[in-house]
């Protein structure tokens, strides 16, 4: 019998368990997966005193409504999220990047993300989850990982394997920044596109379409004209690669992306901008800017340093 558990009263739009993701499986067709916004994922774990790579609950737009039953635990939510904790007849307004103690009977209502897509819920303890290939990240396309590889569903129970009895309250002063200027490195098929197509790609804004999820982000705007071939021999893809199919509308590969693709790649989003990119909501207008590999490497070092600084402030 599990004495500590959450009951899901509302599942939210796309609520899954995620961790650092899976490695070395691209060759059989399994992507990294893992938390979309890596920085916010790590911060969530640090706040509740867990190992940084512990599983958390990731939600998108509308989060879950959870009832907690069991011994006191701490929770933390990262991202830009509106949430409340209901206790008896009172209501506690939630604040991101801060631990909250919850007790049996409390209801945690993760109402919505605010001008962003993903948020993270961590607990001072460990969820009881199934690991596949050393990760519990849920890949709903291949039905791999925790919760039978599926999104969380209403009326389900989430059992806790263990909890941490020492509850330390923690807080971090941090505000997520938005970027709408996405820096990229030229892709291996950059010259498949016409001079005009390339110019439009860097000069015009693209709107993030509603048909975006953990696999990819579809963009709408100027059509990028291909003058060589609208197909390439299918080859490996990576996170952040921007494919342009024959219709001229770019698609950016995200964490659950197909491992192989046959559309020409005009560019690849730099690693330093990935966490910010995935947080942009449908309807947002973005612009691409080209940078060199060496600058991308320096920017990543800087981004990583910033993340480590934030972690050490907790």
């Amino acid at each position: 019998m599990n004495k500590n558990y959450f009951k899901i009263l509302r599942a939210g739009i796309n609520t899954t368990f995620q961790d650092g993701g899976r490695k070395n499986l691209y060759h059989i067709g399994i992507p990294f997966s893992g938390a979309m916004d890596n920085r916010n994922y790590l911060l969530a774990n640090k706040l509740v005193g867990n190992k940084l790579e512990s599983p958390v609950i990731e939600f998108a737009y509308q989060g879950p409504l959870l009832e907690y039953l069991g011994e006191k635990i701490n929770i933390a939510i990262t991202g830009d999220v509106n949430f409340i904790i209901k206790r008896n007849n009172s209501k506690i307004d939630g604040v991101c990047y801060q631990t909250f103690e919850i007790e049996s009977g409390d209801k945690l209502d993760i109402i919505s993300t605010n001008k962003s897509v993903y948020g993270y819920l961590s607990i001072s303890g460990e969820f009881d989850l199934k690991y596949q290939w050393s990760s519990c990240s849920t890949n709903t396309k291949a039905n791999i990982g925790a919760n039978e590889g599926k999104k969380l569903n209403v009326d389900q129970k989430i059992n806790l394997l263990k909890i941490n009895k020492n509850l330390n309250s923690k807080k971090l002063n941090y505000v997520n920044t938005r970027i709408e200027n996405i820096r990229i490195i030229k892709g291996t098929n950059f010259d498949y596109f016409s001079k005009k197509g390339k110019d439009l790609f860097f000069e015009k804004e693209f709107t993030i379409s509603k048909l975006s999820d953990r696999m990819g982000m579809r963009l709408q705007g100027s059509k990028i004209e291909n003058i060589v071939n609208t197909n390439i021999k299918s080859e490996g893809l990576i996170k952040g690669a921007i494919q342009v199919p024959a219709d001229g509308n770019p698609i950016i590969m995200l964490s659950d992306h197909g491992t192989i693709g046959g559309y020409p790649k005009i560019g690849v989003v730099i690693s330093a901008d990935y966490d910010k990119l995935v947080q942009l909501t449908p309807g947002t207008k973005i612009k691409f800017e080209e940078i060199e590999l060496s600058s991308a490497e320096s920017l990543y070092k800087l981004y990583e340093l910033e993340t480590q600084n934030l972690i050490s402030q907790i």
Binding site: Y26, H27, I28, G29, I30, K141, A142, I144, L211, T230, N231, S234, G236, P245, A246, D247, G258, T259, I260, G261, G262, Y263
Partner: peptide, 29 residues
């Protein structure tokens, strides 16, 4: 030739030359 795109999907060749055609212009969702 390879497996991937989605988990376990095999890429099998080779079709005869008169049987070859491009992908759909807009991929299916």
């Amino acid at each position: 030739y390879m497996t991937g795109f989605i988990a376990g999907m095999p890429f099998l060749g080779d079709l005869d030359i008169n049987m070859r055609v491009n992908r759909l212009d807009t991929p299916r969702v």
